[in-house]
């Protein structure tokens, strides 16, 4: 279970020099990568960035052994419910959450990683018909769930030892919330995208979970998913992906879009499009955004990377000869892309 070291290999063609293969992780006991993420691991006074890989029945923690070499530190065996998502907690160490379920999330569990006391624990954080979950700064997890016609939007706080403290209920919109994003630099502001293509803004503090504004994204890009939000000069900028957008002559086949909203008037305007590179057939499948970098798996089995400020594709990873790409995630820190293949191999690229 020691990952093989690799010499960085530049890609040919588009993105040459912008993505360099650094390491390859392959869990010999798993056949299919469900998700991949990173987590800070603090032990004996030092802090290291570890990789977390998930397959349906287990979650593995990988530790850097030497530059470009990784070793498996621990494996959590899960029960009968398959893992479907890792829910990373930004600015937190030794703690990660996972979502388990079939078609939708049925459970959120936290996994604790403290080696000194050999405490690699797991425990239930929330159960229900959960539609979306996101880890936030300050060891918080927001989630939306539905029981019949009633929707609950809830913020859960975790202590340093993982145990859940009291939750806070946020005012739900009528329609189901399908994705969340923190508003960067505004700890009390949170946005979400809904099933009818609206952006919802909440005020999240210890006292209230007010719903401040609901703004429609527009009919041209249905089923938008929010990935990132920030406020600048009185406008709220939201990075959206468009898994169901139709190809158009003016914008090509859009994957990501930066939209500026005026929260005071609920008016909006598209700022930048990031479309599939010319010659790439198919559409956006799933992706991840960190700062101004966006990465997405395309239906062709390739991974494309964009600079959102320029709206340009900067790198393209074609599908491998034996396995196509299934996952694209950015590491918590540093310019590192985690790319998962269908056969369970996870490749780390320096970007």
């Amino acid at each position: 279970d020691v990952a093989e070291p690799l010499t960085p290999v530049p890609l040919g063609g588009l993105g040459e020099e912008s993505l360099q293969l650094v390491s390859k992780l392959k869990d010999s006991s798993s056949s299919c990568a469900v998700d991949v993420s990173t987590v800070w691991w603090e032990a004996a006074g030092s802090r290291e960035l570890c990789v977390v890989t998930a397959c349906e029945s287990s979650v593995c923690l990988w530790k850097p052994l030497a530059p470009d070499r990784w070793g498996k530190l621990y494996t959590w065996q899960l029960g009968d419910i398959p893992v479907i998502q890792i829910v990373p907690l930004p600015d937190t160490h030794n703690l990660v959450c996972i979502a388990l379920g079939d078609l939708e999330i049925g459970e959120i569990r936290w996994l604790l990683l403290y080696s000194e006391s050999d405490s690699f624990k797991q425990s239930l954080l929330k159960a229900g018909n959960i539609k979306a979950a996101l880890g936030l700064k300050g060891r918080r997890v927001v989630n939306s769930s539905r029981t019949g016609q009633e929707q609950q939007v809830e913020m859960l706080s975790l202590s340093e030892l993982g145990r859940s403290r009291d939750g806070q209920t946020l005012m739900p919109p009528e329609e189901t919330v399908l994705a969340f994003a923190e508003v960067e630099g505004m700890r009390e502001a949170l946005v979400g995208t809904t099933a009818v293509n609206s952006i919802v803004v909440w005020s999240v503090n210890l006292k209230t979970g007010q719903l401040l504004r609901k703004m429609h994204v527009g009919y041209s890009y249905p089923a938008s998913v929010c990935h990132r939000a920030y406020s600048d000069s009185g406008l709220l900028f939201v990075v959206l992906s468009h898994p169901h957008a139709k190809e158009s002559e003016s914008c090509g086949n859009p994957a990501f879009r930066v939209v500026a909203f005026n929260p005071k008037t609920a008016q909006s305007r598209g700022v930048m499009f990031s479309s599939l590179p010319p010659g790439q057939a198919g559409r956006y499948l799933e992706g991840d955004v960190r700062d101004a970098s966006a990465a997405a798996v395309l239906t062709s089995g390739a991974i494309a990377v964009w600079d959102l400020l320029l709206g340009q594709c900067t790198a393209l990873l074609p599908p491998g000869p034996q396995s196509s790409w299934a996952l694209a995630r950015w590491a918590t820190t540093g310019a590192c892309l985690l790319a998962g293949q269908r056969d369970g191999t996870v490749c780390l690229y320096r970007y």
Binding site: A189, S231, N262, K264, T265, S268
Partner: peptide, 23 residues
């Protein structure tokens, strides 16, 4: 507060909407 093509904008939009919203 200033005018834009998205209507009047406010740098304090979050505080203002929080004060206006029902608790």
């Amino acid at each position: 507060c200033s005018e834009s093509d998205l209507g009047p904008i406010s740098l304090n939009w979050f505080e203002e909407l929080s004060a206006e919203a029902p608790p």
